[in-house]
Design a protein around this nucleic acid. Structure first.
Lengths: 315, 315
DNA sequence: TTGTAAGCGTTATCAA
DNA sequence: TTGATAACGCTTACAA
């Protein structure tokens, strides 16, 4: 059915290994024959069979991204930047929204060259059985894993945000984020916020967003505002949570200074100025790709945790 | 490196073709040998090589979803429902966020069994060169394509929404949506809204959301409200646009009756009651999968447009 | 510069 | 009930 190298070879009156070489621009073939073969291939609509290729070369040039919760804006931005970065390195990225183990197992069967996983804690950890068979790199937080992890230095980020608030004259700060969760990234944000407030001896309140979605954050903020004022500075745990808060910011006497996690461009198209802390997502993406490609090519994993330095972005 | 059938065969003292049969539970192998082989395979952490399988069987049991704009909440919900439905049919779903042609080409090379594409107009149309080589089904709107399309009956949906508004006593209705776009789905919504308003001889206004994102919708609504009131009923073009509107609904004298496109559960977790029109996403998902699986199995495309009947959901 | 042939890991057909 | 073997489409020594 599909056109194969043999078909092209027959048409061109050459052997199929010559076609194979010609199509990958091998110097072992005359320019003239190359041209003829390429033309014919194009015209016959030849589509290389990756299964066959991968079988002999052990390379699929495909990377799997594991992303079970396709719903948070900041992560969406990161994903598309990873896609770009991988493309530049010659890889095709494909994402699975299955649970991490299922997805990784399938990627393994498909003989992909590597996997990137958005780590969210225990339930998202890949077992050695899998990770010893394929290069893996995680975007997550610092913890014991047998594959490399890229993450933001949350501790520093919180410190930067709180210090900025103090510097602007605030004597009280609120944290608005997901307080009751297993998501390790959220837990770290919460914990470091508290720790830094204590160190600075500044008054603080913790407001539970009841989840990571904009909707839940909106509800939570509404009921919070029914009994409280927003009179200090506020730090939000994520872009979506910030958006939930913004539904109600009109209700308060005056807009407080808001710092949000996630360093993405979307903040620029909002009227209310939201300052942000975080690592620019294109930077995170590049790092993830660099580390992955490196472990694919050198074939040695380094079980390191790479901390990316956050920046403050005033708007 | 990776364990192959031959490795297992050697360990078990049988031929590798027996192992192959045993592992797929063929009746041609004794229960006893099967058990032994399966145990060994498990213990050796055997991972089937899909490339080899696909090479001989011409089946990869994988479906590619083309979804270049991973950012709209309603679509996210749909994607995960498609994932579920495909899984039930024995397929693994993988998504690409590349542009449609690139993605489809890669899916072809990877010898996936089929592709689902979220159609958004000309720029999202797959050429015959591709579609004659792999079963494709689109989620889109009615237009000339050489592969089947599933879509919502927008005409009926608009009619339902406008009629509901009229029934509730509104004499004026506003449409809030993406007015200047190439996205064929948005164009159809806009056009049918206007047509039905004219037919009903009801006053209407068109408010441009300046895009499909919540942020742009929010900005647009803000500047609209600076000079206008929201005193009629309103129909929003999508979930995200509705969310953008909600940022400002507190500013109006009273909450108008709002109908939104997209029939998803997220509306249930918002305080402001938003009624919706649309086809439940699990229904759309199931239809897409049914049609795709059917064309894969029967191996014959039907170039039909399948219109799904929308429903009104009051909240 | 081009062609021959082995081999990648499976499945499936046929023979034992 | 099991085992040999050809074939899938391709890459890559190696031979011509």
């Amino acid at each position: 059915m599909a056109v194969t190298l043999k078909d092209i070879a027959r048409e061109c009156g050459v052997s199929y290994s010559t076609v194979s070489k010609a199509l990958k621009d091998s110097p072992l073939v005359t320019e003239a024959t190359k041209r003829k073969i390429k033309e014919k291939a194009e015209q016959m609509n030849y589509i290389p069979n990756n299964s066959a290729r991968s079988l002999v070369s052990n390379r699929s040039n495909t990377i799997g991204l594991i992303w079970p919760a396709v719903d948070r804006v900041a992560i969406t931005t990161l994903a598309s930047q990873i896609n770009q970065a991988l493309k530049k390195e010659g890889y095709f990225m494909v994402v699975s929204i299955e649970d991490p183990i299922t997805a990784a197992q399938k990627f393994l069967e498909l003989r992909f060259d590597g996997v990137i996983v958005f780590d969210e804690g225990e339930h998202t950890t890949l077992p050695t059985k899998i990770t010893k068979n394929i290069p893996v790199v995680a975007y997550g937080v610092e913890r014991e894993l047998d594959y490399p992890i890229i993450n933001v230095n949350h501790d520093l980020a919180m410190k930067q945000a709180i210090d900025a608030l103090i510097h602007k004259g605030y004597h009280q700060v609120d944290y608005f984020g997901d307080l009751h969760t297993n998501d390790i990234r959220q837990i770290v944000k919460k914990d470091t916020f508290i720790r830094h407030c204590k160190q600075r001896r500044i008054t603080y309140r913790m407001v539970d967003s009841g989840g990571l979605s904009e909707e839940s954050a909106s509800r939570a903020m509404k009921s919070f505002l029914a009994n409280h004022d927003l009179n200090g500075g506020v730090v939000c745990g994520s872009y979506d949570i910030t958006m939930g808060l913004l539904h109600h910011v009109k209700d308060t006497k005056q807009t407080p200074m808001i710092f949000s996690y996630d360093h993405i461009d979307q903040f620029n198209s909002i009227d209310t100025p939201i300052h942000s802390v975080g690592v620019p997502s294109h930077f995170i993406a590049q790092k993830l790709v660099d580390v992955l490609v490196d472990t694919i090519e050198t074939n040695k994993v380094n079980r390191s945790v790479i901390q990316l330095k956050p920046q403050i972005n005033y708007r």
